[in-house]
Design a binder for these strands. Structure first.
Length: 423
RNA sequence: GUGGGUGUAGUUCAACGGUAGAGCACCGGAUUGUGGUUCCGGGCGUUGUGGGUUCAAAUCCCAUCAUCCACCCCA
């Protein structure tokens, strides 16, 4: 009995007719990474579960309910990575990547996993690109990292996005600010949603970006974090803004940005596309100056961001941006008669070795069906080899667009096509 | 985890409880060595799956799975 299998919930296949779009986006990202001089790092798709509990935070939704967890045969607890920063920092510390001093600039690409209810722009296995710049707390670096994200979106042809930045201060500021928030929200306790009532003593900052209308109204007049930054953080944030202005990168200050992952401090930012629906964050990132030390590394600061490919594609679709070109063979070989079919194999191989992408279908016999196939594949040229041509040691090269065709010596055809098909 | 919508041919969608259809795509043909346009021909698909109601179910009911949108969360 044949059983029909279905793809797991919240996942998707990237099908042959659309894979070129993914290639295009990753190529653009790699190119930007090269320009900003980031090097690729590839880490495993799973890590010790504890790695994420300690970094992303035990109280975060990601750890509490969204991790794909499993035990291996010896009972060790692992999790499919829900995000990229923790594994990269783990590798950074483990391999002493900071040894040379200065900044370590890393980028990564790959699938992440979160057990969430699927929705527009949200999947259980999704693909992220991200960067980490480890080793400097200089506000210029913050601006440069942000600039890289900005440049990437621009290079893809997007323009409907906005950059929002905020500073969530350091441990020192937070301690002070949390008290102030608790003091502000406590009188409204009865009017807050149950989540917020729960959060108020754990993470008061989260009340700021609650989406329940009642809470929103109350949060509207809450004291802003920005007014309670200590001198150092305040100065840092101002410098980030100054650097962004120097680079002519437009931004908006949004004091409501609170990163949901525990390791963030100081600069937090998001690139948002308002046309996308509920899941509108294209890129999210921020600074994490304490994380590396926590992982037992030298106590160095870091900053990074990550974005999801799926949302980029949604955004690109709504903005009707073209991405990449369909993969199409250069030539289609048409043969007529059994004798010449024997020549086809060698000719095709020679073409392919020369870098010419060539297609041929040994099961099609009539010239008509072969021409149709060539047309459907949208090839640039058809090569037609029949007994007549073969007898003269020649072959017909037909330009499919213009319809013009010429007779060329069989021994010259590979060299000639190699030249015209070169990019 | 919660709420609502949807599930029929490869695809997009039709079909008052009474024989399941169309566009696009696809395949073949229109004098045997030239594609795109046009014309002609080609569809018995477990109506997501499993139950139930009924003389009769794609249609009504229940369950289940999947999907979409929103909450939540975030990329």
């Amino acid at each position: 009995m044949a059983v029909k299998y279905q793809i797991p919930r919240g996942t998707f296949d990237i099908l042959p007719e659309e894979s070129y779009q993914w290639q295009y986006i990753t190529n653009v990202f790699r190119e930007i990474a090269r320009e900003f001089s980031y090097k690729e790092i590839v880490t495993p798709i799973f890590e010790k579960k504890e790695l994420f509990e300690r970094s992303v935070g035990n109280s975060s939704d990601i750890v509490q309910k969204e991790m794909y967890e499993f035990k291996d045969k010896k009972g060790r607890e692992f999790a499919l990575r829900p995000e990229g920063t923790a594994p990269v920092v783990r590798s950074f510390v483990e391999n002493n990547l900071g040894m040379g001093g200065g900044n370590t600039k890393l980028f990564y690409l790959g699938p992440m996993f979160r057990y969430d209810r699927p929705q527009k722009g949200r999947f259980r296995q999704f693909y992220q690109y991200g960067v980490e710049n480890i080793g400097s707390d200089d506000p210029y670096i913050d601006a440069e990292v942000i600039a890289m994200g900005y440049t990437f979106l621009e290079k893809l042809g997007l323009s409907n996005f906005e950059l929002e930045i905020n500073s969530i201060g350091c441990a020192n500021c937070t301690e002070n600010y949390d008290k102030i928030l608790v003091k502000y929200f406590t009188p409204f306790m009865q009017e807050l949603c149950s989540d917020c009532q729960d959060r108020i003593n754990k993470k008061p900052k989260r009340l700021l970006d609650c989406k329940v209308p009642e809470c929103r109204k109350i949060a509207q007049n809450a004291p802003s974090m920005l007014d309670y930054l200590d001198e150092e953080c305040k100065e840092h944030f101002l410098e980030v803004q100054r650097n962004l202005k120097i680079m002519s990168i437009p931004f908006k200050i949004n004091p409501k940005i609170v990163r949901g992952l525990d390791y963030y401090n100081k600069t937090a930012f998001e690139f948002v596309d308002k046309n996308l629906g509920a899941q509108d964050t294209l890129i999210g990132g921020g600074r994490y100056n304490e994380l590396i030390g926590q992982f037992g590394g030298k106590d160095v600061p870091g900053i990074g961001y990550a974005g999801g490919f799926e949302r980029l594609m949604l955004s690109m679709e709504t903005e009707k941006v073209t991405f990449g070109e369909k993969q199409v063979p250069d030539i289609y070989l048409v043969t007529l008669g059994e004798k010449v079919k024997d020549v086809a194999g060698k000719l095709l191989l020679d073409l392919r070795i020369a870098g010419v992408s060539a297609e041929f279908d040994p099961e099609k016999n009539s010239i008509k069906s072969q021409m149709k196939a060539a047309d459907k594949l949208q090839v640039r040229f058809a090569l037609i080899l029949g007994d007549d041509e073969f007898a003269q040691n020649k072959i017909i090269l037909k330009d499919m667009k213009s319809g013009e065709q010429e007779l060329i010596g069989l021994e010259k055809i590979v060299e000639s096509l190699k030249k015209t098909c070169e990019k």
